[in-house]
Design a protein around this nucleic acid. Structure first.
Lengths: 224, 224
DNA sequence: AGGGCTCCATGAAGATTCTCGTCATGGAAG
DNA sequence: CTTCCATGACGAGAATCTTCATGGAGCCCT
């Protein structure tokens, strides 16, 4: 398992590197946000462990930037801030897990391994499921509650992306970069329109809403 | 493993049923071609063992009919005819293997198990490979000799079907039914045109031909 | 071996279909 | 009250799919 550790405290970083090595994993260390971003963007890591506060660029900003570039490597955020609000913003920024300092390495290790297992399971999975919604990447078919649904190409990509990130907020920027391949702001409401159309197909006629609006942030797919 | 045996010789059929049962498989028996066709079309068999000569409808015709309906269950043909030509016509009709009577059951069993293994491996496989040609059903991408190739939807379906049936003759009727969803003869050369375009993309610029024309029968994808 | 016939290959061109994105208005949320 | 989001309608553009027509290759029969 190949792990990227972003941590500015030299001592802590060395300790992590050593501990991961003992557990049979390979860890690279980045001492600041910029370096971390560069490494993450270039290298092919299984999991990232990111300290929230770092020089040159803070952890959340690095994560958000990576996410908007399509990087979906699981991230565990390390932070001294343990308030609920801090956790929420951390997870919203694209984190997959959040651990408060001080922590036990054994727990960190366990969580990191869970993240990796989940990710590799997801990759080979050909069918995504969220609630009673089902997307089969092989046959390109969508079903909700057993009923077949027909989507247009862009709608399909949109839903696929949302499903891959089910349970986490998906920002407009993420969608623009990964579903539209736009690397600029189109200054229109393209996304809104397509989300609306998608809703018309996957929600109209079914009881529970599944595609939620997070006002001021984006959208989130989440099934009961 | 669920096996369908089409064999009119009652004694031989009973023997096969028993022998398959002893090997841990379930075998159903059809005594004539029509019954066999009906069972095969309805049931969900892993492998079929088909006698070539049967009352009411001969084995090859049954196989061809099943194939044109999109049934891809592997078929092993049993026959007293052992000449090369007989084998060829048998395999061309849609057979996957051919065994001449008299045969040893152990060999039949082994061959049947190979057919099944191949089929089930193929189903979960998300990437097809024929020679240096590669089709990834997940990403919908095509590569030949490492070079990315762009196909249109219909071309993709066409190639996908050809690759799934690589090494065996694919008739126009099979293509019409499974790639075009036509259940009638369009009276035009739609297929030829698309095959031509496909060739233009997957053969032009590469050395070896890979999509072969079987005159009077159809096409066959086969890599060196 | 050659002529004739059938089958296949391929270029071009047209038309339909379908998708995508924009705009504008109305409504909900904070 | 202001900002953000939802949605209906519309228009334009693109792109794919077919069809047609011609030329070439293969096969068979004499």
């Amino acid at each position: 398992m190949k792990i990227l550790v972003m941590e500015d405290d030299r001592e802590a970083a060395d300790y992590l590197k050593k501990a991961f090595a003992e557990a049979g994993h390979t860890a690279h260390v980045a001492g600041d946000g910029e370096t971390g971003f560069a490494l993450a963007d270039a290298g092919d890591y299984d999991v990232m462990v990111v300290d929230r506060m770092m020089p040159r660029r803070d952890g959340l900003s690095v994560i958000a930037a990576l996410r908007s570039r399509g990087n979906t490597t699981p991230v565990l955020i390390l932070s001294a801030l343990g308030e609920v609000d801090d956790r929420v913003t951390g997870l919203r920024a694209g984190g997959d897990d959040y651990l408060t300092k001080p922590y036990a390495f054994s727990e960190l290790l366990a969580r990191v391994e869970v993240l990796n297992r989940r990710a590799s399971a997801r990759e080979s999975e050909t069918v995504y499921r969220v609630g009673d919604l089902e997307l089969d990447r092989l046959s390109h078919s969508i079903k909700r509650a057993g009923r077949e649904i027909t989507l247009q190409p862009r709608e399909f990509r949109l839903l696929e992306y949302l499903m891959r990130h089910a349970g986490q907020v998906v920002t407009r920027t993420m969608l623009l970069e990964n579903v539209w391949d736009y690397h600029f702001d189109p200054q229109t409401n393209v996304i809104d329109v397509h989300v609306s159309r998608l809703r018309g197909k996957i929600e109209k006629g079914f009881d529970k809403p599944i595609l939620h609006t997070i006002r001021g942030a984006g959208y989130m797919l989440k099934g009961g």
